[in-house]
Design a protein around this nucleic acid. Structure first.
Lengths: 382, 382
DNA sequence: AGATTTATTGACAGCGCTGTCATTTCTATC
DNA sequence: GATAGAAATGACAGCGCTGTCAATAAATCT
């Protein structure tokens, strides 16, 4: 006769327990005709209790380990981690939220920016959320329809998010800001016009970027550089113009008033501006438009006038929209750190800086992207 | 002497209760130095219990009313609704989720589509979510990096969403589909190539749209119509070509093989295709590109060749991207019902159709948008 | 009217987790 | 080796809501 000994590991026991509970349930259901749909798929879902059993510690200790709380012995921590991994445990967000009155949700609020802008902000924010087990919910708002503040309030009543990312122009809306402050919900404005005391924001350095573009054009040999301003109400407009001026002054180039034309960030306004600029007796040899759409307008006018870009006219844009690569020739432009701003904003909400290292705002790096629409021949000559 | 009688309404009493609880807490805290941050802002938050008290019914009845469950007397329902409104009650999502094992979250999964596409799908889905007190979480995936199926699985372990919206090309990924099926999570593919048994999807009628564009060009007087195909692996490519063919055949126009050129949806391929078409001995008088980017390429070639659009050449696109309006002349194109598809998809997840009216897929209406890049002079002549 | 069915309501447990606080174990000190 | 203090761990209640099931009220039928 052979003695057969079966060795049941703790893990097996846990699964066995769950399985038996399931069997019980099935039997019960088949007798009573009950329809407890709730348990349908749940019988294999592991909870903190399961992990605790396997690691032979209390639930609370498991919770401590999984939330990186202090005061857990190294050995215990490892044991718990191993158990959690073995059981493929993943926490239940709703339960966590209910118990800790947090939601693990960050909201991204926006009002009609370009799809490109929003898509990139979003990607960055999601990246930060993923790394921290948070999730991003998107909420478009319309500032025109109703009072945006009311809309935000209504939203927050229903969805208790842990933090809010505000994109322009929402980040300068007084109603929205007021509501958020009174509700004490942390928020981070992205590229705001106004700085708010005690609130950190993320932004790029428009002046510096614009300076660099202008400097690049100058170093390429251009002296007569036209500039197309953006929409007057947009905060970036003044900043980008300032960068242009600074560069011109640095190289002792006189700023011809005729070379400064107003636009409004639209393709059409770029066309009109370019027409004005190129109709001048002594037209500029380079045009720096404060965004890509207007730069595209310039290119289109130039090609209509038979003015080959970049040999006869260099064109610089701003934003690095997808358009910049579609255009022929491809556009030299400034890539805003949109993705990075989104990521940073979410990070600031998830891991708020302590008082000590609190900064009013974080400047993220832009990048000058040199493509075919500017002529760098002269650089090579020097 | 005057007798002063104060009438305390039920509502006041509830607030008073909450307030007194708060005072108690404050006193307690000031004595013990305790830091129960959890209660910091909560003391005025109304719960179902508050509503129940005010309406003088049980919590369960309140729950029934607020979730539109049957078997509540009309009077009771009204009473509860009034109380809820008075207290500005709004449910706690986490608690609901925990108790009902639902999450009230819909996930939108995508892998690198155009920002415009994703932004619109998103807007539609969010609209549907808002109307139903659901929320949308966005999750970009990368099909290239790792097995997309694994990524989805990992995501769903952490975030138990109630439904998933799949955009192309994700909606045709076998791994992802397999995971979703095995996890029994409802999903709706948007514009999928393959139809899946028992799963309803949303899509547009590419063939019909393409047919209409071609028909419109024909009715405008064109007989020689060039067609630029899209990327060979994209399901829309064949469908749009089919629509073109159908229209040509309907009007007994011969399809010249030289007029059918391959593209890949990129601006560059549009340029090349246009060069091929316009170099022909007998070039077409109209070109229908299967997307806007390629159409933009056509326009750019035409203007380089001095071929004025639309007087010498009509150009039609597809998609109605922002580019279509930026271009000069503005592009005649087909507007896909992207927003509507997103909305419908979310709606299908939130309110799944019952077995009886289950349809395999829902076709949503596109729209032919006629702008300046096509010449409708001939229509007016007829 | 009384019996039976049906509609309406309520009591209560418990979803999975964390905060609080008590208890146990370890470490450092004299 | 005894003691105080710190570190590690656990017991337990309860977050706000819903599912279950029992209790009650209303409607319908003999």
């Amino acid at each position: 006769m052979t003695a057969l000994s079966i060795n049941l590991s703790d893990l097996t026991l846990i699964y066995l327990n769950k399985y038996m509970a399931f069997i019980d349930l099935c039997l019960y259901l088949s007798h009573s005709g009950d329809q407890r749909t709730q348990f349908k798929n749940d019988f294999m879902k592991t909870t903190i209790t399961d992990v605790a059993k396997l690691a032979d510690v209390s639930m609370k200790t498991v919770s401590r380990v999984l939330n990186n709380e202090p005061n857990v012995a190294k050995k215990t921590r490892e044991k718990v981690l191993r158990a959690a991994k073995e059981l493929r445990y993943s926490p239940n967000l709703a339960a966590k939220g209910l118990a800790s009155s947090k939601s693990y949700l960050i909201a991204l609020l926006y009002d009609n920016p370009s799809p490109n802008y929003i898509a990139n902000i979003q990607k960055g924010a999601i990246k930060a959320c993923r790394d921290n087990n948070y999730y991003l919910v998107i909420e478009p708002l319309s500032m025109t329809n109703a009072n945006a503040g009311d809309e935000v309030e209504k939203l927050l009543e229903r969805l208790p998010v842990d933090g809010i990312i505000l994109t322009p122009p929402l980040c300068d809306d007084k109603d929205v800001l007021g509501i958020l402050r009174s509700l004490k919900i942390p928020y981070v404005p992205v590229a705001p016009t106004i700085e708010i005391n005690g609130v950190s924001s993320v932004k790029m350095d428009d002046v510096q970027a614009s300076f660099e573009m202008t400097e690049y054009l100058i170093k390429s040999g251009h002296k007569k550089i036209g500039f197309i301003k953006g929409h007057i109400e947009h905060s970036a407009t003044a900043l980008r113009y300032k960068g242009y001026k600074l560069a011109m002054e640095k190289f002792n180039l006189k700023i011809d008033e005729n070379f400064i034309v107003n636009g409004d960030f639209s393709f059409k306004s770029g066309v009109e501006a370019a027409e004005n600029l190129l109709r001048l007796k002594e037209p500029p040899t380079a045009i720096f438009a404060s965004n890509d759409d207007m730069a595209a307008g310039v290119v289109s006018v130039a090609s209509r006038l038979g003015l080959e870009v970049p040999t006869k006219l260099s064109v610089g844009g701003f934003d690095d929209t997808p358009l910049a690569q579609i255009l022929f020739p491809q556009l030299t432009t400034v890539k805003q750190p949109i993705y990075e701003m989104g990521k940073m904003a979410a990070n600031l909400l998830i891991n708020p800086p302590t008082r000590d290292d609190l900064l009013p705002s974080y400047h993220l790096d832009h990048k000058l992207i040199i493509r075919k629409s500017t002529d760098n021949q002269n650089i090579l000559d020097n």
